[in-house]
């Protein structure tokens, strides 16, 4: 079976600006793809093209084997979409709104009832069902928007910044909800919150200036960081300069940075060459030198650093 969502060479221009520039990727069932990128990078535009709201200038979108251009209805039927900011009909009640969505999705009678009850329980909006949406808090509005997206149990979920503007508890709830649905769906979610990628995504792509600059698992992305496999060493020592010299001389060490020093305690950051593990040789050197180690930690690499590096085109270690 092919990929659930397959995007090929997608491009979109708005006047002189190229918003999306030749983007291709695929998402399988069971994957949660994090869509990263600075504001204005083309995340929302890409999502609008996948959901059929905007027509691409070139390229193709296939969802569940159907081409969006040839059979838009089949594609739209498969997709649940939460647009950016979760727009809703503010003068309706959540119940009336979801009822409308259910009818558009083709549910009638008992089946409609069942879907509505189901989704209302899933996103916990029982107590606000008959209040106008305009009067609801941001968290509830977002949940109504999510309810609308998952109402018909779609195979593909596309969520544009689903946790943006929510408080930490609400964010946690939304992420939990996404994780529970992750196994049987293909999910694409955009975000600029990097912790979210670690929290829910099985794969992440980074977009900058409309181009796809990075595609991999969160761990693979972290491995692109200069900090990946770097060692942070906290030593109590009289001979800090000597320690620095010795560390620098170790095989596999690229550079050593003295981060801070006070009360006779020095914090070193030791960067490896080519991201290889150097912790054992650092440990050995410490034992031989008889340093008193307060802390020894291996860094995994930081997503925000990779993010900044690939989206601004500054210092990143080439892989």
């Amino acid at each position: 079976m092919g990929a659930m969502v397959e995007i090929k060479n997608l491009s979109k221009r708005f006047g002189p600006i190229t918003a999306v520039d030749d983007i291709s990727f695929a998402v399988q069932r069971g994957e949660v793809l994090g869509f990263l990128g600075p504001n204005g990078a083309g995340k929302s535009t890409t999502m609008k093209m996948i959901t059929g709201f905007l027509a691409p200038d070139s390229g193709s979108v296939r969802v569940g084997g159907d081409d969006l251009e040839l059979s838009p209805m089949a594609v739209k039927q498969r997709i649940g979409y939460l647009p950016e900011g979760a727009p809703l009909y503010a003068d309706m009640t959540p119940y009336a709104f979801l009822d409308f969505c259910a009818e558009i999705r083709g549910f009638r009678g008992d089946e409609k009832r069942r879907h509505l009850d189901d989704v209302v329980a899933k996103v916990h909006i029982e107590q606000v069902l008959s209040q106008p949406i305009a009067t609801l808090s941001k968290g509830f509005k977002r949940r109504v928007g999510l309810a609308q997206a998952i109402l018909h149990d779609p195979e593909v979920l596309i969520l544009d910044e689903p946790t943006d503007g929510l408080d930490p508890n609400q964010k946690h709830e939304v992420r939990t909800l996404i994780r529970t649905m992750a196994t049987e769906k293909a999910i694409i979610l955009s975000t600029h919150i990097l912790e979210e990628v670690d929290a829910v995504c099985t794969r992440a792509v980074i977009i900058a200036h409309g181009r796809l600059v990075c595609d991999g698992t969160p761990a693979e992305l972290e491995a692109r960081s200069r900090l990946h496999n770097a060692v942070t060493l906290l030593v109590r020592s009289g001979a800090i300069n000597g320690a620095q010299q010795q560390l620098r001389a170790l095989a596999g060490v690229d550079s050593v940075e003295l981060l801070e020093e006070h009360d006779g305690v020095a914090r070193f950051q030791i960067y490896p060459k080519d991201g290889h593990s150097i912790v054992s040789s650092v440990g050995e050197a410490a034992r031989e030198g008889g340093w008193r180690i307060e802390e020894l930690r291996v860094e995994r690499g930081r997503l925000d650093e990779v993010f900044r590096a690939v989206t601004t085109g500054s210092t990143s270690r080439e892989v």
């Binding site: 959901t51 039927q77 647009p83 727009p87 809703l88 969505c101 558009i104 609308q148």
Partner: peptide, 8 residues
């Protein structure tokens, strides 16, 4: 955006 991405 909501309306026009529904299957109509």
């Amino acid at each position: 955006e909501l309306l026009l991405t529904l299957p109509i």
